[in-house]
Amino acid sequence: NQASVVANTLIPINTALTLVMMRSEVVTPVGIPAEDIPRLVSMTVNRAVPLGTTLMPDMVKGYA
């Protein structure tokens, strides 16, 4: 099973992502692959992402 990116904290809308905000976890449904974490750093989220939420491609500006 592939690990996905999961919010390690509440990420407010329009926040630039940092490494400490994200962790990898095997979850269903599958979200952004964990190997993309380095690429996500400094990208911003377009909605509030609660703790434990899987990051989906449409949640990160410029990812999809």
Rank of each mutant, 00 (worst) to 15 (best):
N46D: 10
L10V: 12
D58S: 12
I11N: 02
A64E: 07
Y63F: 10
V5Q: 01
V60D: 02
L51E: 13
N1S: 14
E25W: 05
R23L: 04
M43D: 03
Y63N: 03
L19A: 07
V5P: 01
R47T: 14
K61Q: 11
V5T: 09
Y63D: 03
S24Y: 14
V6L: 13
K61T: 15
R39W: 07
E25Y: 08
T9Q: 10
G52Q: 03
M56G: 05
V6Q: 03
T28R: 03
A48F: 10
P57E: 08
P33G: 06
V20M: 15
T53A: 12
I13N: 14
N1M: 15
L40G: 00
A34L: 04
P12R: 10
P12Y: 07
T9E: 14
P33T: 10
V45E: 00
A64V: 11
P29D: 08
I37H: 02
S24R: 07
T54C: 04
V30P: 11
A3T: 09
T44E: 07
I32V: 07
R23C: 04
L19M: 13
A7H: 01
P33D: 08
M56V: 14
S24V: 13
P50A: 11
D36W: 06
P33V: 08
M59V: 13
R23K: 13
K61V: 11
M59H: 10
G62D: 10
M22T: 02
A48V: 15
T54S: 04
V45S: 09
I11E: 01
V26Y: 09
T28G: 05
T9L: 12
R39F: 10
V6I: 13
A7D: 01
L17R: 00
V60M: 04
P57G: 08
V45C: 05
A48Q: 10
E25F: 05
I13M: 09
N46P: 03
A3N: 06
D36E: 11
N46R: 09
T44R: 10
I13W: 07
A48S: 14
L10P: 15
M56Q: 15
A16L: 07
L51S: 12
T54G: 03
I32M: 03
I13G: 09
V30W: 12
V30M: 13
P29F: 04
G62P: 07
N1I: 15
N1H: 10
S42A: 13
P57T: 07
P38L: 12
P33R: 11
M59K: 02
L55T: 02
M22N: 00
D58V: 08
V5E: 00
R39N: 05
I32C: 04
I11H: 01
A7N: 01
R39Q: 07
E25C: 06
N14Y: 14
L19T: 08
N8I: 05
G62W: 08
V5I: 14
V26Q: 12
D58N: 12
G62A: 11
E25H: 09
P38C: 07
G52S: 11
L51T: 12
M21C: 04
R47G: 05
Q2I: 15
V45L: 13
P12M: 11
A7S: 09
L17F: 02
V60R: 01
L40E: 00
P12D: 10
M59Y: 13
V27T: 12
P12L: 11
L40H: 00
V45Y: 00
A48T: 15
T28V: 14
N14F: 12
A16C: 07
L51M: 14
T18F: 03
N8S: 14
T9G: 09
P29K: 05
V20F: 15
L40W: 02
D58F: 13
T28D: 15
Q2Y: 11
A3I: 08
N14T: 06
L10S: 12
I37L: 15
T53F: 14
E35R: 05
I37V: 08
S24F: 07
R47Q: 12
M59N: 05
S42P: 00
L55D: 02
